[in-house]
């Protein structure tokens, strides 16, 4: 604890009085630790820790969810996906309320087992998330999946969205806390662009409060020295080159695509779709899915929050009409969503 106190003291000493400093985290688990440890209450007033796009469920397009709901209504289908996905609201309800044949899984391997024990059904794995969940999906494809298993890919790329944010002067990011799990896959090298091209200190951190504080300290140290670097305080887990095997597999099965982010819009090169070679596994093609026009959720500013342009408390519905029991937008549903996390801790 004394060590933590020491780090906090150093953080205070490194923040200049006359300047606001904005550090963004881009990972739901980081935001979870920051909020649940009450870290913001220990920071100097002019140091902001902003939650960014760390919640894949929050940005998953409404269209994909509605397609998933419709697929689950087919008698010959079982839709499988991660728990948070089931409760995300759309204009047509959620998978849990409107879907029919669906199951929650915690890892893609369960999808294989479900496919094996239901050979008379088509199992559609609604595979969402950033690099951390893409890699295991590529992994099962490489292992060989049963004939009756199909993938509905709604994967998103972290570095691409971060680059969009860095260029947005309205947000004004001074430093990034790079996500620990994603970094384990893509490597610290994936973040070099931020320090080298944009001069933004970028530090990979783990999930303990102490380690995150160390990450913040490192960003402040770089800001003070006026030299941006990509560094890593989560050393045991993250290597510069990342997990090359996972990267190779992801590249083998997926290709970069222009995709929609819910509440934000289309971002070039920010998502992953199955390569054409594997189109026979691609639920979008096999089931001829069509895009459903996205509707705005009245009052919900999830998209703005994901981009770090507003805090959940700025939403008029936060804590009033919108609570974890009556979520109006996706950010209140997922445990990685900023609204959900802030609801529990603010």
């Amino acid at each position: 604890m004394d060590k933590v106190k020491g780090i906090i003291k150093l953080i205070h000493s490194l923040v200049p009085d006359n300047k606001n400093i904005r550090i963004m985290n881009v990972c739901g688990s980081h935001e979870h630790t920051i909020a649940f440890s009450g870290m913001r209450s220990l920071m100097p007033e002019n140091l902001e820790i902003i939650p960014g796009p760390g919640c894949p469920v929050c940005v998953c397009p409404e269209s994909d969810i509605i397609n998933a709901i419709n697929l689950s209504k087919r008698e010959d289908v079982i839709l499988v996906t991660y728990g948070d996905m089931l409760r995300v609201p759309t204009q047509k309800g959620s998978i849990r309320t409107e879907g029919k044949n669906f199951r929650m899984i915690t890892s893609p391997f369960e999808a294989i087992n479900i496919a094996k024990s239901n050979t008379d059904r088509k199992i559609i794995f609604f595979s969402i998330g950033f690099e951390t969940t893409t890699a295991p999906t590529a992994g099962i494809l490489e292992m060989g999946v049963p004939e009756n298993l199909f993938i509905l890919s709604s994967h998103r790329l972290t570095p691409t969205i971060m680059e969009i944010l860095v260029k947005d002067a309205e947000i004004g990011i001074d430093g990034f806390i790079a996500p620990g799990h994603v970094s384990a896959i893509v490597g610290t090298n994936a973040w070099n662009v931020f320090s080298e091209k944009y001069g933004i200190p970028t530090v990979v951190a783990g999930f303990e409060a102490g380690n995150l504080l160390l990450g913040i300290l490192e960003i402040l140290r770089q800001l003070k020295n006026g030299k941006a670097e990509t560094s890593n305080v989560y050393k045991g887990v993250v290597k510069p080159e990342g997990n090359m095997q996972a990267q190779k597999l992801m590249d083998k099965y997926f290709e970069v695509a222009n995709v929609n982010w819910r509440g934000i819009g289309y971002i070039p090169g920010s998502g992953l779709e199955l390569r054409e070679k594997y189109s026979w596994k691609d639920a979008r093609i096999v089931f001829e899915l069509e895009e459903v026009k996205e509707t705005k959720i009245p009052g919900c500013i999830c998209g703005t929050i994901v981009l770090g342009k507003a805090y959940p408390s700025a939403c008029k519905l936060f804590r009033k009409a919108c609570t974890p029991k009556t979520p109006k937008g996706p950010c209140m549903v997922s445990m990685e969503g900023s609204c959900n996390i802030w609801y529990k801790t603010l």
């Binding site: 906090i8 649940f36 409060a209």
Partner: peptide
């Protein structure tokens, strides 16, 4: 709640 690192956060009613 006073957290182990000395931070503070709200405890609320929630199932």
């Amino acid at each position: 709640l006073k957290t182990t690192i000395g931070g503070e956060r709200l405890l609320d009613m929630l199932e």
